[in-house]
Write a protein that binds this DNA or RNA. Structure first.
Lengths: 256, 256
DNA sequence: CATATAACGTTGTCAGACAGTGTGACATTC
DNA sequence: GAATGTCACACTGTCTGACAACGTTATATG
């Protein structure tokens, strides 16, 4: 029984937010997704159901349900009889993932310009990216990079695009993590990103899309052949603390 | 143990295709997805776990795992304590779904032109669409329309885009089905679709994208307000047999 | 060394259980 | 009679336990 006491009694009801109850499955999936994004779970690593369930203090059925979410996202892979593994990306996945990202982000740019959305979050993310590059830590730069691109998509106002972007971020991370050469990141990405942000802010659609395409192509080609841009200074790192807010990659609450 | 008997023994191995074993979960999810696409399961309809599991002759845990797939696709919705329902689309979803479709299909166009992919499947699908329009059955036209758009994306050669498109097809169908005015389809869509196919075949990127954007905008606006294009002849229908091949909406085998 | 066999761990699937929650019918109160 | 309280029922959310099928590794065998 909930009693709402207001004083004076004739006043408006206090502002009550809708109670959100995340399902256990959501929580488990979030944990696993973040573990992958942060590198705690490596590509190819197989998930022992009993052990993992114990670790998360949930039952095996609950864990299995959560795994289906990640499988459907393409973040984990099911091999019949052999269980579930963290997806390992191959060379052929590089272009595919970046094709999806170009799809999502191009559309985001179009929507932002079409509807004149605020680009505030984008500029903020750009500043963060600049700071991260000064720190010169591969993982930090990678995080800031993806955060920037997510800010772009979030600014579009499309819930579905934003959700897809979150999944694509994990895919992108998996591309880096699946490369035996280790995590690596380009330092000169700030110029193109600044140009993108400017073009979007200025409402220049076709220039934005051109720059975006170039960013995607460069990122993909760097993964294909890291020695590609010889003059580009590069930061490498095998590990490094992930600076991910736990809530960050949570997908939209599934309840209506 | 697999023994391959060849005669003569020195000859080439017979062509053996990799054995694909779809997991039970895949099969259940496919069934449910197709049931939604074909209209057997209506938007808002809730899934009684016990009854549905009995119907499919699987256990409740297996069904629940499959439901997680569909929830993650956005095709079903979870309401805590109230179980799982077929997603019901609202007016605000119309633009969102079509934004995603424009994202996917625009990128497909770019990829096809960039890599000079064959447009054979697209022309075939266009012919099918013409035939469907002659039949003048709302559902058939709707199917052929979506099949055309999927052919476009499949031609891009991107597995991920193609998967996303399949999900978006179900979303699109849900938009129509969620509308209490019933299923309805425009007859004049053939012209714009033919123009799109031609532009793509001719490698004219910017014209293709323009036409595509127009197609999406028109489809969305028709859902927002069916009386919009007064001069456009329209076929309406509340039901109608779905002409979907059972295999059609199967997502990529999840095993690597 | 290659092959067969055995042993073990793990997955795939199920039945059963039970507390928590939602829902609708009915009674009650002001 | 509208709002509130009560009760019973149905269903979900989650867990335990079980077991056959499958994979994998170690061991034995020719």
């Amino acid at each position: 029984m909930i009693v709402i006491v207001t004083n004076p009694p004739t006043s408006e009801l206090p502002v009550l937010r809708r109670v959100v109850r995340s399902s256990t499955i959501d929580l488990i999936a979030d944990q696993l997704r973040n573990a992958i994004y942060s590198g705690s779970l490596e590509p190819g690593q197989s998930i022992n159901e009993v052990r993992t369930a114990e670790l998360l203090v949930v039952s095996r059925p609950s864990l299995r349900e959560a795994l289906q979410r990640l499988i459907s996202e393409g973040v984990m892979t099911h091999a019949p009889g052999r269980g579930v593994h963290v997806s390992r990306m191959r060379a052929s996945d590089i272009d595919d993932v970046y094709a999806v990202r170009e799809a999502i982000e191009s559309q985001a740019v179009r929507l932002i310009i079409r509807h004149g959305r605020s680009v505030h979050r984008i500029s903020t993310a750009l500043t963060e990216l600049e700071r991260a590059i000064e720190d010169n830590v591969a993982r930090t730069i990678g995080d800031a990079d993806l955060t920037f691109h997510h800010a772009l998509v979030a600014s579009s106002g499309s819930v579905r695009l934003s959700d897809l972007m979150k999944v694509s971020m994990v895919h992108t991370r998996l591309l880096s993590l699946s490369d035996e050469r280790g995590y690596e990141v380009r330092c000169d990405l700030i110029d193109s990103h600044r140009e993108l942000a400017e073009a979007v802010a200025a409402g220049e659609e076709s220039r934005s899309l051109t720059v975006l395409a170039r960013i995607m192509a460069e990122a993909a080609s760097r993964l294909h052949d890291p020695e590609d841009g010889l003059e580009a200074r590069v930061v490498r790192g095998r590990e490094g603390e992930a600076s991910v807010d736990d809530q960050w990659l949570r997908l939209r609450e599934s309840s209506q």
